[in-house]
Structures are given as structure tokens and as C-alpha cells.
Design a protein around this nucleic acid. Sequence first.
DNA 1: TTATCGCTGTTAAATTTATAACAGTGCAAA
DNA 2: TTTGCACTGTTATAAATTTAACAGCGATAA
Lengths: 214, 214
Amino acid sequence: MAKQLTFKNLPHKTIERLSQYRRALLLCLSNGKTHIFSHEIAKIQHITSVQVRRDLMLIGYSGTLRKGYNIQELIDLIGNIIDSEEGINVAIIGMGNLGRALINYFTGKRHKLEIVAGFDTNPDKIGNTFSGVECHSITELNKIIKQKDIKVGIITVPADQTTETAKTLVKAGIKGILNYTPKPIDVPDDVYLEEYDMITTLEKVAFYVKMSDE
Amino acid sequence: MAKQLTFKNLPHKTIERLSQYRRALLLCLSNGKTHIFSHEIAKIQHITSVQVRRDLMLIGYSGTLRKGYNIQELIDLIGNIIDSEEGINVAIIGMGNLGRALINYFTGKRHKLEIVAGFDTNPDKIGNTFSGVECHSITELNKIIKQKDIKVGIITVPADQTTETAKTLVKAGIKGILNYTPKPIDVPDDVYLEEYDMITTLEKVAFYVKMSDE
DNA sequence: TTATCGCTGTTAAATTTATAACAGTGCAAA
DNA sequence: TTTGCACTGTTATAAATTTAACAGCGATAA
Ligand SMILES: NC(=O)c1ccc[n+]([C@@H]2O[C@H](COP(=O)([O-])OP(=O)(O)OC[C@H]3O[C@@H](n4cnc5c(N)ncnc54)[C@H](O)[C@@H]3O)[C@@H](O)[C@H]2O)c1
Ligand SMILES: NC(=O)c1ccc[n+]([C@@H]2O[C@H](COP(=O)([O-])OP(=O)(O)OC[C@H]3O[C@@H](n4cnc5c(N)ncnc54)[C@H](O)[C@@H]3O)[C@@H](O)[C@H]2O)c1
């Protein structure tokens, strides 16, 4: 009997890397490449080729011995694993500098993941469209989340509005939150949460720069 | 003889958490709190109190038994460890949507870490000041990096300009790079590199949302 | 034809990171 | 004054993640 590949217990780090592999592979494909070796992927991602082969083993993909991995096949397989078949709709709350930068960057990049609505409190923004994403009043959030079957929310409101925004999202039945404000939030266990603060990353870089000096 | 605390081999994850602890502590301080327990810090950061105590043990900080940790003292100690005494200057290359959002967010947030220059190729931007940061021509990068003793660069140029920008920075003697473009870069071993792509994070959130559905 | 080379796929080992377990402490209430 | 309690600090254990080791394979070329 073949090994059961459920993908339910892939390591978290592997999930992240699969997304990164795909990004790199899409670029290679657009450059006309059709096959790639594990050590080439590794170099791009600053990791080892063993790591790459191990990850691909976990998802059950086999390359050919002489030519390496078929880029298109691998892209498709990664898609089968990390994408949701029917697609996942995303909303962004807070159409300020960061929110608009993210929308502008993300829109059209992925088939199965789409930012389908923006929300704000500022009347000057409500009703406008930014990079193809319409900005709605926050008062309509609950309605539109349900209407458009939005599962994931990205929070880019001012820090002091974060807690309230998170509550609103949870109440509307959101299943995942990506919080870009510097204010950590609390969510129920059934909501998946990621938080990111650029200052932490920048301080980490600064720390290791300082260390290399000493 | 007291244990030698060099901080050179603190776990990477501990470094990240120290930055996050400080962010949380600064907020608590501004709310008038003077002391805090490990489980309170833990709750904010979505980790366990053991983790917090272990991290603080590694940096040699002791709280008082009944009142917990002195917030101001802990902030100062974390600063002594992760900040560079003389401060570190940062430049941002690419004053577009994302670059300006980051500048606007970061400016004034930390004493020992300052964005002191921006660079762009667009004549409309060069000479202007954004959130207090002056935008220079990219042709002046080398000169200004040296003049202002800039050690860290943040890359927010269009993806296809990334490789070239990274090369320019390395040649100018930069010691750390934070790359926000989706194009991974290569740097020499003595340059510390962090890369971040929002799509990876968003795809991770989407993946676990999808998984919880099945 | 046979040896060599540079890949892949997989199991084993090492390292890193997180969690558990528990002794020690000082206040508070009995 | 003694017992319980709610913390801290530290060592021991476990889990997650990475790296190493190596067998197998197929093209290439001697
Ligand atoms: N994680 C990072 O790396 C990073 C980087 C930059 C900014 N930030 C954070 O992101 C957030 C947004 O930053 P910005 O520069 O875009 O700020 P901004 O002021 O430009 O944008 C905030 C937007 O949110 C809207 N808003 C305010 N209250 C709201 C509410 N209750 N509901 C919905 N919308 C509301 C405002 O009208 C505005 O359009 C801030 O919290 C900032 O600290 C994070
Ligand atoms: N990591 C993330 O989460 C994330 C989010 C959004 C955008 N991005 C990426 O960040 C980058 C910037 O995005 P944006 O929305 O700000 O784009 P943008 O077009 O608004 O800004 C790019 C800026 O770079 C300048 N520029 C172009 N070539 C340059 C060069 N050679 N040297 C210096 N400056 C140059 C342009 O004049 C412009 O001002 C893009 O690569 C985008 O893909 C990343």
C-alpha cells in the first residue's frame, strides 16, 4: 500500500518553503526554464539542497535523475497542496499607506487567493477603488464578509484600532488573520493568526550587524 | 565566578522575542504599569510563561518574586543587548508605496535605529522629504552611505531592480540588508540578510484555514 | 563494457528550539 | 508560626527542524 500523503502534518517551515519554492519556480518558468535541480532551488532560497529534496520527498514529488525537477509539474503539485481548490477570498481592513501598498503588490499575483474587498472608516476612501479593490465602510464588514465568503482578513489599521478590528473580524466569522499592526491581538483557537512587525526584523538585522562588528 | 554573558550565542528566536517583549513592555509602560509577570508577557506574545522566563534567564535578568519584572529595567536591559550603543543608521532604497509606508511607520519609534536616508531613481521624488526622510538620487548612494555611516539597507524597489540594488549596496559597504521584494538576492557571507514576502505569510494563513476546513 | 560522475530519495544523526518538571522563595492568611 | 499559594529560575526532557550519510540510478565516456 502506498504511503498516505495527507499533507495535514507537513512541518510549518516546509509550508513556508513550498510557497517560496513556487515563487522562485514561477520566475524560472517565465524565464523559459523547464527543469531545475535541487541545488539550484537551494541557492535561490539560501538553504541546502538536502533541505529541498527532503521537502519534496514529504510532498511525494520525484524528479528525473538527469534533468532534475520538472518546473511546471512541481508548481502544479505545490498548488494542489497549499492552495484551496475553490480559492480563498481575502479582505484588507485599513486602506492607508500600508494597506494600499499590499493591495497594489498582491493583486493578480495568485489564482487561488484574492483580495476581494477593502474596508475603512474614512469617508474620503469609502467608495473608491484602489488597484481594483473597492473600499467599503467598516459598518458593512459583517455583511460583505458573508456575501463574498471572505475567509481571511489582513489588518492594517492604526495600532489603537487593532483590538476592535480583530473583534469585528472574528465576530463576522473570519477563519484566518494576518496582523500587520504592532499591537498583538487575541483570537479564538479556531482562528489562525500570523503577526508581523517590520521593527522586529529590522532590529534583528541590526543586532547581527552589531555582533559582527565586535 | 559569575557566568559569562556574552549574548553572542543567544538563540535567533530569542533575539526576535526580545524585540517583541520590548515592544509590548513599552506599551505597558505608557499605560502606567511598572511591573509585569512572565505569564502576562506570554499572553501578549501567544507563547508560554516558561518560554519568557527562559529567555530572561538567558539574558541574566531576575525579577522580584511578588511583583514580577520591573518593566523599565527590563526595557533597558533588552536595549543594552540588542541595540548598538552608538546607534545604527539605516537607508531605504525605493521610495514607492511600500518604502514610504515603512518610513512613515518606523520614524521616531526607536532611539538607536534610525532611517537617515532614502534613495530613488525617479526625479519627481529626489529632493523631496517623506516623513522627515530625504530622498536622494541613487547615484549618490555610495557617497551618502559612507558620509552618514549607514550600516543597514532596506530594499523596496521594483522586483526587477532588486539584484542590481543589492549589488550597489554591498559595494557601498553595507553590513545588513532587509529585502522586501519578492526577488531573493545573494550577498557575501559578511552581510547579514533577511528577506520577507507577504505572499508567503498570506499563503501560510490560507493553507491552515483550508486545513481547518477539512 | 565498465568505471565514473552527479544527481535523487531516504534513513540516521545532530542541532535547535520548546516544554515539562520541580526546587526555592516570600508574602498572606489561618 | 506554619501552611498554602503564586510566583521565579533552572535543569531535564521532548519535539521540531536541519544536516549528514549513503545507497541507487542513469547518462557519459574511457
Ligand atoms: N508590520 C509592519 O511592518 C508595518 C509597517 C508599516 C505600518 N504598520 C502598521 O500598519 C498600520 C497602518 O499603517 P499605515 O501607515 O497604513 O497607516 P495609515 O494611517 O496610513 O492607514 C490607516 C488606515 O486605517 C483607517 N482606519 C482607521 N481606523 C479604522 C477602523 N477602525 N477600521 C477601519 N479602518 C480604519 C484609516 O482611515 C486609514 O486609512 C499601523 O498600525 C502601522 O503601525 C506596520
Ligand atoms: N514584501 C512585501 O510584503 C511586499 C509588499 C508590497 C510590495 N512589495 C515589493 O516591494 C517593492 C516596492 O513595491 P511598491 O509598491 O512600493 O512599488 P512602487 O513602484 O510604488 O515603488 C518602487 C520605487 O522604487 C523606485 N525605483 C525604481 N528603480 C529603482 C532603482 N534602480 N533604484 C532606486 N529606486 C528605484 C521607483 O521610482 C519607485 O519609487 C516591489 O518589489 C514589490 O514587489 C513587497
